[in-house]
Simulated assay, not measured.
Amino acid sequence: MSASTPPPVVRPPVIETRALEKVYSAGTEAEVVALKGVDLTIAHGEFVAIMGPSGSGKSTLMNLIGCLDTPTGGQYLCDGIDVATLDREQLAELRRDKIGFVFQGFNLLPRMSALENVAMPLGYARVPHDERAGRARDALAAVGLANRGGHRPSELSGGQQQRVAIARALINRPPVLLADEPTGALDTKTGEEILALFKRLCVEGHTVVLITHDPDIAAHADRTMVMRDGELHEEGPFDTRIAQASAGVTP
């Protein structure tokens, strides 16, 4: 490398946790240790599945990654930013700018059109009205719904509603999409289409973290992590039978 050539820019992991812990009702008879020393590193552009049965801690981990809750111990860095150093307003800005949420239940407002649902987060970001509509149309086009902007949720199929929800999650161009059982309310074929969309988004530079209890869904990810009693374990080359056993699922 010549002296005039700048060194390559090394991006920090988009998600990094170090010995992350979460304890509910600490010091009481009702104490629950939900997370035990979780170390997790996810790079930009990865598609990672975190799976486990109910009560394993995966929902708690999702809430911490999404900055919806605070850890009891350890450290969480989101795109290189130590979340613990942020005040409430800064935390809300990080959540808005860095993380898009996709849920099983779609969470669309029934009286709003698809375009209005997608554009809604831009209002909180104080984006001018004309720009909101243009960006919302672009986001709908990116998920294959360019001609459905005027339809309300009741006029859309389940798969189309989930695509609208994904477009809404993308509207602020966050580096991370956090998807909690995003195919749970969909039939198998439509679920496969949504997972294919996530893969395409990763190719385009987004990072997708998929929370699921289903090994067949997790098999679509590049990497699979399994929660067991509050501890996070990374699987090797994906084997459905091993993942099922780890997650407490009967084949």
Rank of each mutant, 00 (worst) to 15 (best):
S154T: 13
L186E: 01
V176Q: 03
G159K: 02
A169M: 09
H151Q: 14
E192F: 08
R152Y: 12
D180A: 12
L156Y: 10
L177V: 14
R168V: 05
R152D: 05
L195P: 01
G149M: 03
R173D: 15
E181K: 08
R168N: 09
D180P: 10
R173A: 15
E155A: 15
G150T: 10
I171M: 07
G191L: 06
K199F: 07
Q160D: 03
I171P: 03
P174W: 05
V164A: 04
E155C: 12
K189Y: 11
P182K: 02
A196Q: 14
F198I: 11
E193R: 14
R168G: 08
T190C: 12
E193D: 15
L178N: 02
R163S: 07
L186P: 00
A196M: 12
L156S: 08
Q161K: 15
E181P: 10
L186I: 02
K199D: 14
E193F: 09
L186T: 00
E192W: 08
L170P: 02
G191K: 01
A196H: 13
L156H: 06
A185Y: 03
L170E: 00
G158K: 10
L178Q: 03
L195S: 01
P153G: 01
A165F: 05
Q162R: 08
G191R: 00
V176I: 15
Q162K: 09
I166S: 02
N172L: 13
A196I: 09
I194C: 01
V176G: 03
R163A: 09
I166N: 03
T188M: 12
L195C: 08
G149Q: 04
A167T: 04
R173T: 13
A185N: 15
D187R: 10
L178Y: 05
H151K: 13
V164D: 02
P174N: 10
G150N: 14
I166H: 00
I166P: 03
Q161F: 09
Q162N: 11
A165G: 11
R152M: 14
S157Y: 10
P174K: 02
A185C: 10
G184C: 10
I171Q: 02
A185S: 15
R163T: 08
P153R: 00
I166A: 08
G191D: 04
Q162I: 07
L156I: 13
P175K: 04
L186Q: 01
L170H: 05
G191S: 07
G184K: 06
L178C: 06
E192V: 12
A167R: 01
G191A: 11
L177G: 00
K199A: 15
G149E: 06
A196D: 15
K189N: 13
G159Y: 00
T188W: 09
E192H: 14
R173F: 09
A179S: 07
K189H: 14
A165H: 01
G191P: 09
R152S: 06
R173Q: 15
N172A: 06
Q161T: 10
E192R: 14
G149P: 03
G159S: 07
T190G: 11
V164H: 00
L178W: 00
G184N: 04
L195E: 04
R152L: 14
L186Y: 02
Q162A: 06
G149D: 03
T190M: 07
L195R: 03
L195A: 05
I166Y: 00
I171G: 01
A196V: 09
R168W: 05
P174E: 08
L170F: 07
E193Y: 07
